[in-house]
């Protein structure tokens, strides 16, 4: 009885301490994480989000293809990679699958005004002011018609993050050279290999949805990913950062089961030996 009382004191002290340094301290330090906004409700745009794909293709070739390629439809960019890096310090993305991973309303607002949509005044792409609201709709319709459906987490991550971020543990390297990124963004974007461990997943989701909500002042542009794409990216980052989770959870049960038996055995032996000691 007396020993149980001591144990109880010990447990209470440990639990209070643990509560203080883990859940409580983290709630004070990080505060509330803002909820992601997948409607991109701050963006007001009159541009259409759908239209005629055939017209869209013409508009694409005339307005976009000087910088952007579209492999799915056999369109090569007008400038090669090195020329693009030299002029923008970043590789313009191939737009084959962009409509599958980005929110279309965001995409419409983005085409009209990339700096506003990405919340990054230095964003490399100029506003496409020459396009009418309907034109934008046609282009989005075209992009949707060529985009591959059901991309997996890895593919989306490479599409969405791979121009600037490396994931070197997966042998994925940023498309744009580090020194150009530094010139473009002010610093080299961090490697994402263990990002799933370095940040809470909830935070990552909010951050990807809108970097300014996670790290105010960051030079990372808002990407405008859909909810599904964001979740797939987060799940992928989580999985590559902790590849042995399943093995760990399973082995843990075995080890604890083993020790429970050990407790039984040692308890029986202790009782036997202490039978005559009072």
């Amino acid at each position: 009885m007396k020993e149980l009382k001591i144990l109880l004191i010990l447990v209470v002290v440990v639990l209070v301490g643990y509560w203080g340094i883990e859940p409580y301290a983290h709630s004070v330090m990080h505060g509330e994480v803002k909820k992601p906004d997948y409607n991109y409700s701050d963006l007001k745009t009159t541009a259409a989000t759908t239209g005629d794909p055939a017209k869209g293709k013409e508009l694409f070739v005339a307005n976009c293809a000087s910088c952007h390629g579209l492999k799915n439809d056999g369109i090569n960019p007008g400038m090669d990679k090195n020329a693009a890096i030299a002029s923008f310090n970043v590789v313009p993305p191939d737009l084959s699958n962009i409509a599958a991973i980005l929110d279309h309303k965001f995409l419409a607002a983005f085409i009209k005004n990339p700096q506003q949509a990405t919340e990054n005044p230095k964003f490399a792409m100029p506003p496409m002011a020459q396009l009418s609201d309907e034109d934008v709709g046609h282009i989005i319709a075209y992009l949707s018609s060529v985009a591959k459906k059901n991309l997996d987490g890895k593919e989306i991550t490479i599409e969405a993050c791979g121009r600037c971020h490396s994931i070197k543990y997966q042998k994925i390297y940023a498309e744009t050279p580090a020194e150009n990124l530094k010139a473009y963004l002010g610093k080299v974007p961090p490697d994402l290999s263990v990002m799933g461990k370095a940040k809470e997943l909830e935070y990552l989701e909010t951050f990807i949805n809108n970097p300014q909500n996670g790290l105010p002042g960051t030079s990372m542009p808002r990407l405008g990913l859909t909810k599904e794409s964001t979740e797939k990216v987060v799940a992928y980052l989580d999985q590559i950062a902790d590849p042995h989770r399943e093995q760990r959870n399973k082995l843990g049960m075995w080890v604890i089961g083993y020790l429970v038996v050990m407790v039984g055995l040692t308890f029986a032996w202790k009782k036997k030996i202490w039978k005559n000691i009072h």
Binding site: G252, V255, I256, L259, V260, M262, V263, T266, F267, W269, K270, K272, I273, W274, I277
Partner: peptide, 18 residues
């Protein structure tokens, strides 16, 4: 005698630890 108890304490501790 003492170690009999000690083994028990160690086993319980190891559950917590692992």
């Amino acid at each position: 005698v003492f170690m009999a108890k000690e083994f028990f304490v160690i086993s319980v501790f190891l559950i917590f630890f692992f």
